[in-house]
Design a protein around this nucleic acid. Structure first.
Lengths: 317, 317
DNA sequence: CCCGATAGTTGAGATAATCTCAACTAAAGT
DNA sequence: ACTTTAGTTGAGATTATCTCAACTATCGGG
């Protein structure tokens, strides 16, 4: 026989009174009068058909039924409070929530965040990683790093600062070249297995292998073949595993290039007219944590040494 | 900055709508109009200062904030409901309350309970499903099926019987293999999207992908990526939908393997030294219903045919 | 022993939270 | 093109929750 659920406010009244073993203390906690709690609990007892408290004149004690009911309610209400409190984190002054793509997160930002942490031990940075743009109004984020067109019209709701221009460069594992023989020209490259990074493909025009080969004057490359990924980090990992040659964001490939895990087989690039941008909500006063982060990330970008990875930009798209 | 607690009825409205992803369905469950829920949730969003749902004209979807808030509320309200329900049935001789995890419930136990009902029509089995261990003293349960270490020290308050050893096997939809190409080795598997089942992660050491890849000799798999679930049934459902490859409990994956919805792409497993156990309160005379259930579930486990799903156990953790 | 303080209860009425209803928008289905 | 459906919104109705005041009875201090 299933009982109908009693009112949640009555259950909460009981839980608080059981925890304090005092109507008065529970009333203070819940900002109501002891009379309110007394009514609530009496009503609960009538509905459930059991006595939950033994009343003494100036004290209350749990009955066996009350002892049975209390722990599950205590845990349940605690979890509800924790869930609400967990959401509150986003508004805390020393918590900074930065939204960016998984590719940018795992291939460039995450490996550097320890430096920010060292420089600003008082600031707790949380990376909210998703393939779609997070919403400043609804998703509790403070800042975003986004891949956007450099000619995008201003959005009245957003402050946007250009951070790092994007070029697309072919990258592959040196082991791929060992396996397939020397690669000197775009034509040579066309016979390698290709990897396609299709991040954003459905939402915005992106440069891809077709653009690269066209700019290089190669018209007969078979672009249907090859692995396709919808996250740049997965595509870069596949390239690192010799799965093929990837047309990669230079910034995201940077660390793998620096370690030698990836090389640039043909030093020709295309510039799609896009850049990573720092984005925040217009009108919202930027917090010191957000200002510190912006300053730090600009320094990190400025500190990158591209001299060993220069390419000739064949086309400005 | 701690937010004041919002009204419980608003949180309940949100939880029901989030669970159904439908205002109409949630309204039916709560016996109110969709307009009532719409007002409650809008008020909750204003109070918390975040959007919890993205509104489409005839549908709603959770925002990131909504996804963050929902699980804790869902668990919290489930525990409150269970606590009230537990009070209702305690003491009824032909009611048997069995506590276990949602994964065990929906992926293995529930599909078989009709057999127990057929064999014992006089016994009313109630499954109390939660992610945390229920308490025999307070939660009104008669028996539990728990994932425990096989070397756990005896608990003076509990009778514990080993039921079914746990191995972790990689499983995925055959459609994932169709999409990504042949998977023959652990290295091959490393490039598939991963699914992480984080049930129990915060409470007990669990085997995970890191353990599996390490045992397989793969040291460069990127384990930060992939979907994460805190309930095995959700993880298995995602795997069935081709979201990736999951390191699953063999027992919980059994039915999906048997039907072919899931396959084992690389037949390598790890054995974490854990097993499902039957647990009851020591000192309490076991009821005939509990004895019948124990006997039945042992028979069900013994009847499983693993011949088609053999794997090589790479490591005993 | 008396008196004041304290904790809990109870009934009546006030307050405000919650709900229904109707009208609306706009996408989906026929 | 029309109908159906899901969700939203404002206004007003309903009812759950609350306060208040009066009460009971124990406890502690003088």
């Amino acid at each position: 026989m299933a009982r109908p659920m009693p009112p949640l406010s009555a259950l909460r009244a009981f839980e608080a009174a059981a925890r304090h073993l005092s109507m008065s203390a529970a009333a203070r906690e819940l900002n109501v009068t002891a009379g309110a709690l007394s009514h609530q609990i009496r009503g609960l007892e009538e509905m459930l058909g059991v006595r939950l408290f033994e009343r003494r004149v100036r004290a209350i004690a749990l009955t066996a039924a009350g002892k049975q009911l209390y722990p599950g309610l205590q845990t349940g209400f605690a979890q509800i409070r924790d869930a609400v409190a967990g959401l509150a984190v986003a508004g805390q002054p020393n918590v900074l929530v930065v939204s960016t793509s998984p590719g940018m997160t795992s291939k460039w930002l995450a490996p550097r965040l320890y430096k920010f942490g060292a420089a600003h031990p008082d600031i707790d940075v949380r990376i909210s990683s998703s393939l779609t743009n997070a919403n400043f109004e609804t998703d509790g984020i403070d800042l975003a790093v986004r891949n956007m067109s450099v000619t995008a019209p201003p959005d009245r709701m957003l402050e946007v600062e250009r951070l790092a221009d994007i070029t697309f460069i072919p990258v592959c594992s040196p082991r791929l070249i060992d396996k397939h023989g020397p690669v000197k020209t775009a034509h040579d490259l066309a016979r390698l297995p290709l990897i396609h990074d299709e991040t954003l493909k459905s939402r915005a025009a992106q440069a891809d292998w077709k653009d690269w080969f066209t700019a290089a004057g190669v018209t007969d490359a078979d672009l249907r073949r090859g692995l396709r990924f919808n996250s740049a980090d997965h595509a870069l990992d596949a390239a690192g595993e010799s799965a093929g040659v990837l047309l990669a964001h230079s910034l995201l490939a940077y660390d793998d290039l620096r370690t030698g895990r990836l090389v640039i087989p043909v030093k020709l690039s295309i510039a799609p007219g896009r850049a990573f941008h720092l984005v925040s909500a217009r009108g919202r006063k930027p917090s010191p944590a957000a200002e510190a982060f912006k300053s730090w990330i600009k320094d990190e970008v400025a500190a990158l040494d591209w001299r060993k990875f220069k390419t000739r930009v064949m086309a400005q798209l």
